[in-house]
Design a binder for these strands. Structure first.
Length: 106
DNA sequence: AATGTGACCGCGA
DNA sequence: TTCGCGGCCACAT
């Protein structure tokens, strides 16, 4: 066991681990994921998730939304699939496409 | 080593 | 209430 083996796992691994822990049917904001994974800036979480597209994992990326309870801007295609996936988990979207974080938040 | 970039967030208008 | 702008930090090049 060398000293270099003591270093913490890289940021992405931490982020993915937290996202993996989000329960079925619930959502977390980027800020929350950042907080729980030890990252200071929530933007990094979005960055990590965007890189997830290329790595196939069973990570429930759809359960991460922004602080307003809305799906973050991206291609229409991706946004629609995220919404579909969440609705299939029983998450209800309000009138302006918002999720009530007091109900579905962790 | 330096610069660019982003699935964010909070605040002021 | 919605919209625009700046600040933030870690990954990519």
């Amino acid at each position: 066991m060398t000293n270099s083996d003591n270093k913490l796992p890289n940021t992405f691994e931490n982020i993915y681990a937290v996202v993996d822990s989000i329960p079925f049917g619930l959502v977390m904001t980027y800020s929350q994921v950042a907080l729980y994974s030890g990252v200071t800036n929530p933007r990094v979480v979005g960055y990590a998730l965007s890189r997830l597209n290329t790595n196939d994992r069973n990570t429930p990326w759809q359960r991460v939304v922004n602080s307003r309870g809305k799906i973050s801007d991206r291609s229409q295609e991706q946004m629609k699939s995220q919404r579909d996936l969440l609705e299939s988990e029983g998450v209800c979207f309000g009138r302006n496409g918002r999720i009530d974080l007091n109900v579905y938040g962790v």
